[in-house]
């Protein structure tokens, strides 16, 4: 390789590096302080509307990792057999099939994804619990014992969205 050309190309590479040294768009998301704004339709923690559920078990049938078990509860007029889904989030892969295939729109998804626990049993969510998650997501963290960690050490804020008016967050601001 021609050493002169190699030298010029190295200088070119270094100029690109220098350019980034001074125009600094940061792509890091400081996670516990900032949180990503999740789009609608994000597949996260499920919630269940028990009054809509008929116990047809299609969700349990279509679940690829077999995370859903149908459990007996008090029968309702709509759900004569009293079968409701219990979701084991140890297994759940968030494929969203149970929501997609539910003929009665009883199961839904929330944008909650931080489901860390100390005890694996806390990831097995019975139907009553799945129903309560919608109104009060905080019970998730109380139930799993992670609310200790979630006490705000930092001021939580939602991050500047990735797609801004001028383009994307990663782009340097042009003057």
């Amino acid at each position: 390789m021609n050493p002169v050309k190699a030298f010029i190309d190295s200088v070119k590479s270094m100029i690109v590096g220098f350019k980034y040294l001074f125009t600094v768009p940061r792509m890091t998301l400081k996670f516990p302080e900032q949180k990503m704004v999740l789009p609608p339709g994000y597949r996260g923690q499920h919630y269940l509307e028990m009054d809509k559920c008929t116990g047809c078990s299609i969700c349990a049938m279509s679940c690829p990792p077999r995370a859903i078990t149908m459990v007996k509860r008090d029968p309702t007029p709509r759900n004569k057999r009293g079968l409701f889904p219990l979701i084991n989030f140890n297994y759940c892969i968030y494929c969203g099939y149970c929501v997609l295939f539910c003929p009665f729109d009883a199961l839904h998804e929330l944008d909650i994804h931080d489901l860390a626990v100390y005890d694996r049993d806390k990831l097995i969510h019975p139907p009553e619990f799945l129903q309560k998650v919608k109104e009060n997501p905080e019970i998730l963290y109380e139930y799993s014992g992670m609310n200790v960690i979630r006490t705000p050490r930092w001021k939580e804020e939602y991050a500047e969205p990735v797609f801004t008016r001028r383009g994307v967050k990663h782009e340097p601001i042009r003057k």
């Binding site: 980034y20 040294l21 940061r26 400081k30």
Partner: peptide, 13 residues
Amino acid sequence: KMAAKVQMRIGPL
């Protein structure tokens, strides 16, 4: 810190 700047990161904080 300098490597972080070039790489669009934050670095030690």
